[in-house]
């Protein structure tokens, strides 16, 4: 049974996967800059920022903060993240910062943010790169991922892919 369920089964799945889904089975790696599925940390004004991460985007090991709803630390982090996001993006005190930019993800490697969060960062990036805001807005519209099969999950946008495209615009 061990040989069957442990060895033959795993080998079989690996074989088929490598044959048909080679790129995905190996981690959807994009030319040495990262994986499409694994989020990265961005602090520069020139890039879209990812969500806060309890592991600081280090995949070894992955994980969340595990702080409870009455945690002082969580409350402080949330306040700091909110005011930081508002200040850096030159948003007014009354702007509602999207939930996922305030709170850290479960895996610490969440590759996505909401479209709304991306839009709020446009002004800052346009200024830092000295390019037109409309080009960035267009980029967001192009890269927006809809609900899968139109109803599953949430609308979102992949931060790494977005930033790669952003670099391409700047070079033109």
């Amino acid at each position: 049974m061990t040989v069957f369920t442990g060895l033959i089964y795993t080998m079989f799945i690996t074989g088929i996967s490598q044959l048909f889904f080679r790129e995905k089975a190996n981690g959807s790696i994009i030319q040495h800059v990262g994986s499409e599925l694994i989020g990265q940390k961005f602090t520069s004004d020139k890039y879209f920022w990812s969500r806060p991460s309890a592991t600081d985007y280090n995949p070894l090991p992955s994980g969340g903060s595990n702080l409870g709803m009455t945690s002082k630390a969580l409350q402080n982090n949330a306040l700091a993240n909110t005011s930081n996001f508002r200040a850096k993006n030159e948003l007014s005190e009354s702007t509602i910062v999207p939930n996922e930019m305030i709170f850290s993800s479960a895996s610490g490697l969440d590759p996505h943010i909401s479209v709304q969060s991306a839009n709020l960062q446009v002004k800052r990036i346009a200024k830092a790169r000295n390019i037109n805001e409309s080009a960035i807005v267009q980029l967001i519209a192009n890269l927006k991922e809809n609900r899968q099969f139109l109803f599953l999950g949430e609308e979102r946008i992949n931060v790494l892919l977005l930033n790669l495209e952003l670099d391409k615009i700047a070079k033109q």
């Binding site: 690996t14 490598q18 995905k24 800059v33 990265q40 070894l60």
Partner: peptide, 26 residues
């Protein structure tokens, strides 16, 4: 796997992120 779950015997992948940090992907 067809959706992107990994299945490989290769060792972990080290990449240099866009901002230049090292990231080792398990």
């Amino acid at each position: 796997v067809s959706q992107g779950v990994v299945q490989t015997f290769d060792s972990y992948v080290t990449v240099q992120t866009l901002e230049g940090a090292e990231q080792t992907i398990a």
